[in-house]
Nucleic acid binder design. Structure first.
Lengths: 197, 197
DNA sequence: AGAAGGAATTAACCTAGGTTAAGAATATAG
DNA sequence: CTATATTCTTAACCTAGGTTAATTCCTTCT
């Protein structure tokens, strides 16, 4: 896959959010990253001020507490925009890292320059707003699930929402996504198995 | 406070997020709401498809689980934009209600019409994107706190972040904001009192 | 001021999930 | 095809926070 193809698939993805983005304005150079399963695109605490586009592969957003416990915030499958909105927009350190769960390919732009070049295009701004709406709503729904439902219910919802991930990633990562330990998840699965007869 | 003043303070608030919004485009009629302490602006499960501006007063976003337990997602003090982004944007039911903690005054617009009139203005779109960035980052930081810190730590952080609320709202609402019961919060406060000697 | 309805505290008990550790089941590498 | 390392399960025990309920403390209303 060459740079032109990468560029095109990124533009196509973003264009789908709205109408008529003027990509001619974008002159800043794109970087290309290829990382292997298990490696990190960036780590928690980095100044990850780039906009990343995941072309192919699978990643998770993972944050680690002071005591070293991992928590998976999101799974993301390409093609999709990824990155830390907070770190990009406010030029601060990230609250999470991004780890590849499969070999993955990304392109990226420095956000401040990208935004400065594109913010004068109304088509871009509308797509950017749509993108932000979408990720905000996702967070709203996830907060809701966390607050209202038990770990067992969240596990069942996860299996329904990500049937393709359910069996293809380690259970400890599912556990860290629903906010419990692998041991607790194993117990829940045991309980469900018995309940099913 | 008359309608013109309400309109002006809303525009001033939104203008601060960026430059040069063309408010002439906005011709749809604004509604005005006044509600008393304890009452709801809208309830969880409503189609709250309006953009609300809280001019004065204090509200909380509260969601209630199937078992009837309350969880406070946000406290918001005027002047500020409030409402459910999800319900507005996707025309679905809200996941939370908005309750006044003090007598409060709002204005509101039907979002779909508002957006249709304003989306052709680049100044508005940029402000809207900035607004979305801001609320997204707030959620990102709160998710982080929930996942990484104990209830005690979240309580201390709350006291530091909202010193003015700490003593002016019922403790049960602080408890529901940090995600525990009033009884548990009382225990934590007791423990902290002892620790301080 | 007195009555009444919340709000906060405290205590006793319960439970979901955490912790540690050992064994069984899979992967992955050589 | 072993050997080594992960991952998953299971069990025993622990802990933070939930539940219920009684008691005290504030408000607020008349």
């Amino acid at each position: 896959m060459d740079r032109i193809q990468l560029q095109n698939s990124f533009e196509a993805y973003f264009n789908e959010l709205g109408y008529g983005i003027d990509w001619q304005r974008l002159t800043v150079r794109m970087d290309v990253h290829v990382i292997r399963k298990g490696d990190y695109l960036f780590r928690q605490g980095d100044f990850a001020n780039r906009l990343y586009f995941l072309h192919s592969g699978l990643v998770r957003y993972v944050s680690i507490s002071d005591e070293g416990k991992e928590f998976t915030q999101t799974f993301a499958k390409g093609p999709r925009i990824i990155g830390s909105t907070k770190a990009m927009v406010t030029e601060t350190r990230t609250l999470f890292g991004i780890q590849a769960l499969e070999d993955s390919m990304f392109s990226s732009y420095p956000w401040q320059v990208f935004y400065e070049q594109m913010r004068h295009d109304i088509g871009f701004l509308e797509c950017y707003a749509k993108f932000l709406e979408r990720i905000f709503i996702t967070k709203e729904e996830r907060e809701n699930a966390f607050v209202k439902y038990s770990a067992e219910r969240r596990y069942l919802d996860f299996c329904a929402a990500y049937p393709e991930l359910k069996d293809s990633i380690p259970q400890q990562q599912i556990a860290s996504y629903i906010g419990i330990t692998p041991v607790a998840l194993s117990r829940i699965r045991q309980r469900l198995k018995l309940a099913r007869g």
